[in-house]
């Protein structure tokens, strides 16, 4: 088969481009996740009280937990539409490696759900009284961490494809796996907010991203083959 090194990633690019086109034509789906993120974060001051020092202290945790939940909420859409209309079957039958096609889908998922969260986060951080340095680290951790959420979430989405009560099940499978990302992500922001170094947190978060990039698409591909059998 005529598959050069460049040709190998063409499967990734093809699906990435298609999913972005689809997202562009269904823009409300994209906005729903973002609004969910904003609303969940805004609920906390109402529940905890407007005391600024308390809010500043819990801000990293709240923003990160809200990011986890928003990502989770969007995972159902990752493969379901393609599963229902039969495109997923064609992906499995493609001569291009399925893991690279999955990579394209996950990349599109991140651009559509993760990236807007990253861009929105400093605004929400300001509402919680986070300082400049902390805001910068908040964005940076989300930038490294949200792709991990998409990659790990894809495994859960693939395993629960087409199951009754898939939405609740997916959170049961995926949330425990999100814990390390939460710890290092929120930890880095907290460290900087209290005047410490966040280098170690960021390196560990980066290591998680590398690990998820290497194994995530491959495991997700295996899960999809199991789910469609």
């Amino acid at each position: 088969m005529e598959m050069s090194g460049i040709g190998l990633l063409s499967g990734t690019r093809n699906i990435l481009a298609r999913d972005l086109t689809l997202a562009g034509r269904r823009i409300t789906d994209v906005l729903t996740t973002l609004f969910f993120f904003v609303i969940v974060v805004s609920l906390f001051p109402l529940g905890v009280g407007p005391e600024m020092n308390t809010l500043r202290m819990i801000a990293p945790g709240i923003l990160w937990v809200a990011a986890l939940l928003a990502t989770m909420l969007s995972l159902g859409r990752l493969f379901t539409a393609d599963y229902i209309d039969g495109t997923l079957e064609q992906m499995l039958l493609s001569p291009q490696p399925l893991s690279l096609i999955v990579l394209g889908k996950v990349a599109a998922h991140w651009l559509v759900t993760g990236a807007p969260l990253v861009l929105m986060s400093p605004l929400l951080g300001l509402q919680f009284g986070l300082g400049g340095a902390a805001l910068g680290v908040l964005m940076l951790t989300l930038l490294i961490g949200t792709p991990v959420l998409s990659l790990v979430g894809a495994m859960g989405a693939a395993l629960t494809l087409g199951l009754r009560g898939g939405g609740a099940l997916i959170s049961l499978l995926v949330l425990p796996l999100y814990i390390p990302v939460l710890i290092f992500g929120a930890g880095a922001v907290e460290a900087v907010a209290s005047g410490l170094e966040a280098g170690a947190h960021l390196s560990l978060l980066g290591a998680l991203l590398v690990l998820a990039l290497c194994f995530g698409p491959w495991v997700t591909a295996a899960a999809l083959r199991i789910s469609l059998e």
């Binding site: 088969m1 086109t21 034509r25 269904r26 039969g86 079957e89 001569p95």
Partner: peptide, 19 residues
């Protein structure tokens, strides 16, 4: 993959996106 390159499957589902 080499087998999949030589085969086309047309099933019950059309694989056509509305949008």
């Amino acid at each position: 993959d080499a087998y999949r390159a030589e085969m086309v499957y047309f099933g019950h589902l059309a694989g056509v996106k509305d949008e």
